[in-house]
Amino acid sequence: MAEKFDNLEEHLEKFEENIRQLGIIVSDFQPSSQAVLNQKLNFMISGLQDIEKCRQQLHEINVPLEVFEYIDQGRNPQLYTKECLERALARNEQVKGKIDTMTKFKSLLISELSKVFPEEMSKYKAIRSEDAPS
């Protein structure tokens, strides 16, 4: 899996470097630079062909749309991963808190019900003790 990404990354970096060099040539153009410019333009096309080839290898990759929003806003996409993990942990803690609270509530309810309905609750406890894993 990592090879696919490395391959794409390599092609993208080459493409980006070529574009950067193109930009430099164009920013202060000299008549002697025309041949180099033509060469760079064809490099750009071959770079696009290489990236196009990588597309077939990456069909199964799913990218969350929220990551695109981060990039569009000029934010570091690693922040998305960070926030996702933090959210997951926070939600995990919330659910754990609810479960703990409900467990406490159960024991409290049983003790209170035992006071009001002692016979029924002793029967209930007897049934549950059978169910309880040894």
Partner: peptide, 20 residues
């Protein structure tokens, strides 16, 4: 983690931190 996109892609030329 640094907030800006340029810190994630430091070699990318241009002003990439501006909203797209």
């Amino acid at each position: 983690v640094k907030e800006k996109l340029s810190s994630f892609l430091p070699d990318l030329p241009g002003m990439i931190d501006c909203p797209g």
